[in-house]
């Protein structure tokens, strides 16, 4: 669902509207995390008396999503570069990574990082939150890699030839020419992946991270009132994904120099 705001002043440019939307949505997100306990406290039991608990769970969920989401994009870019690299070994490593991460359940990966990894490499004994972040980041990174790869492949060869013939190094060709165009193509699937990540972060519940779903489940178990608690939990997720799609929509509009989006 897309919420249509009352509309920005007519004379604002596309960039200004986009920046304003990003700023506004970010402020809304911060306010939400900071102050959401206040409106929740007004709700009847068992929500009102657990408002603070819900707010903490929501903060953890957002932290998981932001940390894993940003790392997942970096991992995705690296893996996509590996997949399209001219070096066979890199292609092979990137393909192996994507194959494993996409071919196994996220829940197993989370459990693996938390429980199995320390027995393999004792130095990698991570706490529950860090384990969840690592597993989520590498999982979403694999899906991001394919989205970014499709973006990279969509950039016409002539663009790279033009950049190289101007004397741009392969680094600047990537930074200034290939990546911005690839990112624009990859953005909608990347948003998809990140929305999925926000919801999948609930699996961190399995290793005891007290995030939103865990909070909701604990409250319903303690109060025997699953209906209001789970509806509240679901609504918080819905609000979060809505704010997120507003931000990503604004980013998309910023890149839409041709004005192809209504």
């Amino acid at each position: 669902m897309k919420i249509t705001l009352p509309g920005w002043p007519q004379r604002w440019s596309r960039e200004q509207r986009s920046s304003a939307t990003i700023a506004l949505a970010s402020v809304v997100l911060v306010l939400l995390l900071w102050l959401m306990a206040i409106p929740l406290a007004l709700a009847p039991e068992p929500i009102g008396n657990n408002a603070q608990y819900f707010a903490e769970g929501t903060r953890i969920t957002v932290e998981l999503t932001v940390v894993a989401g940003l790392s997942g994009i970096v991992i995705g870019v690296l893996a996509a570069l590996g997949r399209t690299s001219g070096i066979t070994l890199l292609r092979w490593v990137a393909s192996l990574y994507i194959w494993v991460m996409r071919g196994t359940p996220l829940l197993v990966q989370i459990l693996f990082v938390f429980l199995a990894l320390p027995t393999l490499v004792p130095a990698l004994r991570l706490d529950d939150f860090a384990s969840a972040c690592v597993a989520l980041a590498f999982n979403v990174g694999a899906y991001n890699a394919e989205a970014i790869r499709s973006g990279l492949l969509a950039v016409p060869k002539g663009q790279i030839e033009a950049a190289r013939s101007l004397g741009l190094s392969s680094f600047y060709t990537f930074i200034d020419v290939t990546f911005p165009q690839a990112f624009k193509v990859a953005l909608p699937p990347l948003v998809n992946n990140t929305v999925a990540l926000l919801k999948d972060s609930s699996l961190a519940y399995a290793i005891g991270v007290v995030e939103l779903t865990n909070v909701g489940n604990r409250i319903q178990a303690a109060t025997f009132q699953p209906l209001p608690t789970l509806i509240t939990t679901a609504l918080v997720y819905l609000v979060l994904t809505t704010v997120m799609t507003q931000i990503s929509g604004a980013v998309e509009r910023r890149y839409d120099v041709e004005g192809r989006q209504p």
Partner: peptide, 17 residues
């Protein structure tokens, strides 16, 4: 080499972004 030579392509190849 590429500093010495400027190139103009059939398909222009301007950077659209």
């Amino acid at each position: 080499l590429r500093r010495e030579l400027g190139m103009v392509f059939q398909q222009f190849n301007l950077f659209p972004h």
